[in-house]
Design a protein around this nucleic acid. Structure first.
Lengths: 358, 358
DNA sequence: CCGAACGATGCAATCGATTACACGCCGCCA
DNA sequence: TGGCGGCGTGTAATCGATTGCATCGTTCGG
């Protein structure tokens, strides 16, 4: 008895309203082209039947999916997931769905992405990861099927893509200057992962600030790094072995900063008593560790929102401007509890030490 | 000159291989039904033309989208994003895409979800949030269009849905017992948010452990809570005002535990010196705060993987078993640095104090 | 030697919406 | 009054893949 009622189609609506399907379609997509009365009859019919347009049919005909693909290296990392949050919200507000592709560079990346596009499941790509294969990407975006693409957070060197990112270099400079202003003279740096663009940008910002203040950088102070806590903790091990230790560290991101601080503690050093630390990102976490972390805040929500918005603009206006656009958002210095004046020297620096204060 | 080459269709492949489109389709979806040679010619043709099936067309015809919708309250929260990670991986491995709907309960939830289904964009729903409107959900899943649905992590009381979750009650019991075994007798609890199922389950587990050990619970020790760090910090304020303070706290999740510890510190109390704390979840963060947090690990990756797998099973075998299935994963006790023996009493407890050790 | 059965393939309908084109009607202007 | 230009609507083609049914050989059992 209980017949499975089929989901209503545009045909049902048309029949109910006594018009053709063409008219129903028009009434829904460009209401001004349909007379007042018909429009009323149709919206009544839609209401009664409970009609929802079938997206597959629409996609097939119009060759659009109203969906964007967000490719990221690690959703599990809250740095990215906060961005994803903003992206999803912006996309939803413009009627777009968000498909996620996680662990992007590792898998068959290029292939899977190509599939998504060629199979018409997505209209554009938001790339939150600079470490992808440029070749494949170009193949995808270049002729004969140029694809709307925006790279956010990172940047692919020498690649002609639109980007949205923060002012990494300048932010690193400010972070370092903050330490200098507190009176630190020997300031070290925990680098980002090798091969990442951001690593270079932040390190250079750090170097510029040091140079501007007339401070030299001892090579030992550049600790090999990465973006994970473990790496920061390991850096602490190296750090305590340095003969004439810096009194402050600028870490390339919050995770390594937090790992570093926890490593310091294991070795009996206190932050900020013995060593001041500045991070980068301002993860939610940063405010809640102890001591709360001084850091450069990346406006991640804004970044996600802007990137998603720009991508959808790109999709909808088919004008893929030839010259790539670069949007730069500014970071904000957040001073909390991990930075303080340097400890008073307990003994004069040994004369053989390499570091210099000019 | 530069003609825009169209993306290849099944027609192109058929032409190239000198067969009909039907044969191409069969060669791709059920190779055993096509002769060896034809299959070879076709795969060659696919290779040459660079053909990828158009998903919209396929969806339209087969009424499936090969996509699942994951609804969650907050992607930005790493608790969820780690699950999402696993979900995405499992789904991808089975050829499914993952659409995300964030801040789920707040928005037009029911509506948006209905749209996703009715418009044939998704085949099933993975709900990581128990606080949704049951009515709307039933409307969606009930006849005439039953929809594959799995609720993970939480559970909707009295709703006939399949669920995948951890053994919250038992886990809470074990966490509490751990404190008891260390010698604590006055043990408090920071509750989860009001109205959340998990809040009750964890609180009851705590109560059971106390009762089993013959310990009474003073109402004051039940701190109003929530799942955010702020809440934990606030609880610390209440905590220090208690006349005869507990020597240990079982917090309903890691965030509130961490916030609580940081609040303790502000009030001059040490963890675990003065107060031991156990959390719940084992966020990545938990291992990296100071002191590293003792907690009950929820197997989040497994949970995501299993939930996604079960959902896809549900989608593919159309057998929506009438009786809802409940999968329970077991948690794991992770002992780190926030729990220790209770401090030696500095003075005999005042005789008027309310707490009791029987 | 005949017909059944089976394997391989083609034909054409189908999924549901969009849209180019055509048509009828009305009003306006010459 | 005839022609023209909108406006509102309908007809039917179209998007690309899947699939029920028909067809054509071949093989094999009786």
């Amino acid at each position: 008895m209980t017949l499975v009622k089929k989901t209503p189609t545009i045909q049902d609506v048309a029949r109910f309203a006594n018009v053709s399907t063409a008219t129903v379609s028009r009434a829904l997509s460009s209401p001004e082209r349909v007379s007042e009365q018909t429009r009323a009859r149709i919206s009544e019919a839609v209401r009664v039947t409970g009609y929802t347009p079938n997206q597959s049919a629409r996609s097939l005909r119009q060759r659009t999916a109203r969906t964007i693909l967000v490719a990221l290296p690690d959703i599990g990392n809250s740095f990215f997931s906060v961005i994803l949050d903003a992206v999803e919200r912006e996309a939803a507000s413009r009627g777009y769905g968000v498909l996620v592709a996680n662990r992007f560079p590792r898998m068959d990346s290029g292939l899977r992405m190509r599939d998504y596009f060629l199979s018409n499941r997505v209209d554009g790509l938001l790339l939150l990861d600079g470490s992808v294969d440029l070749e494949q990407l170009m193949m995808l975006t270049g002729d004969p099927t140029p694809v709307p693409l925006i790279v956010a957070c990172e940047e692919i060197p020498n690649a002609p893509f639109h980007t949205v990112k923060t002012d990494n270099g300048y932010a690193a400079e400010r972070a370092t200057r903050h330490l200098i202003d507190l009176g630190h003279r020997r300031i070290g740096h925990i680098r980002g992962p090798d091969g990442n663009v951001l690593t270079g940008e932040r390190e250079q910002g750090y170097a510029r600030a040091m140079q501007a203040a007339g401070l030299d950088i001892c090579p030992e102070w550049l600790l090999p790094g990465g973006f994970e806590m473990e790496v920061g903790r390991a850096a602490a091990g190296r750090f305590i072995a340095i003969a004439d230790r810096p009194t402050a560290i600028f870490a390339a991101n919050d995770e390594s900063a937090i790992g570093f601080i926890s490593g310091l503690r294991q070795h009996g050093l206190d932050c900020p008593g013995d060593v001041s630390v500045v991070g980068f990102d301002d993860l939610v976490l940063a405010a809640h560790v102890w001591p709360p972390l001084t850091t450069m805040r990346q406006p991640r929500a804004a970044l996600g929102r802007i990137a998603a918005g720009a991508l959808i603009d790109l999709i909808e206006g088919e004008r893929r401007s030839r010259v790539p656009m670069h949007m730069v958002l500014s970071s904000e210095m957040i001073v909390r509890g991990t930075t303080a004046r340097p400890p008073a020297p307990t003994a004069p620096a040994s004369p053989s030490s390499a570091q210099v204060v000019r």
